[in-house]
Nucleic acid binder design. Structure first.
Lengths: 111, 111
DNA sequence: ACAACGTTTCGACATTCATCGAAATATCTA
DNA sequence: TAGATATTTCGATGAATGTCGAAACGTTGT
């Protein structure tokens, strides 16, 4: 039973794009994606990115608010993990709306 | 013979994501994508978005600088058109790097 | 209960981004 | 060449974003 995989609104898409549109956050998200469900703690992420804890929190919040990552507590650690479904929805929006699906003359497609 | 379709750097990806991460610009890009090679003039785009010409130029520049759109002159009009290849490269980056290609435990993929 | 640890919140500050009128530039037409 | 049209550049302004130290908060172990 899949959790609702509904289409993204334009506003939500802008939010997700903006969340990924930052050097630190793109790295952050890629780390979490390759890590999988297990996730990584805030501390480990801060160390990998070499940014102070408060800065990291700021970026994690952007990604969280955009729905691209989730968090859970494990003792005194807080573990973040990528939300694959949200990322799928974003890519879906881009391929459907921004890659020439409708009536692109000459059948030009980019992906 | 395809023009070089090389992989995007992280920096270029951030730039492209940032270019699309705005309400007006996402609409702009979608309009151009569905229009195809023919493109649309700045004037028409400004009218569709209902923004003053100088504001439109600002947004078109962001997209241009990110390489997502191209421009050509036609008389006193300047025509903008989507760069499908650039968009393809962006989506390619996202699917390859941000959707769990490497060693995602449990084979979790988002797209 | 206390101290140590991991993380977030708060507050201040600097930087970047977005908006838009007015002036400048380029092209067409008469 | 003058006037109209299409677009960009410039400059000023306000809003949003990013950075980070210090303090607060929750959890664990003693």
């Amino acid at each position: 039973m899949r959790t609702t995989l509904r289409r993204l609104t334009a506003a939500k898409t802008v939010e997700a794009l903006g969340a990924l549109a930052h050097e630190h956050r793109l790295v952050l998200f890629r780390l979490l994606v390759q890590r999988g469900e297990e996730g990584l703690s805030a501390g480990v992420l801060a160390e990998r990115l070499a940014v102070p804890p408060s800065s990291l929190t700021f970026h994690l919040q952007q990604l969280t608010h955009a729905g691209l990552i989730g968090q859970r507590r494990d003792g005194r650690h807080i573990i973040y993990a990528a939300d694959y479904e949200a990322m799928g929805a974003l890519v879906g929006y881009l391929t459907e709306n921004c890659c020439g699906d409708g009536t692109p003359p000459k059948g030009a497609k980019c992906c």
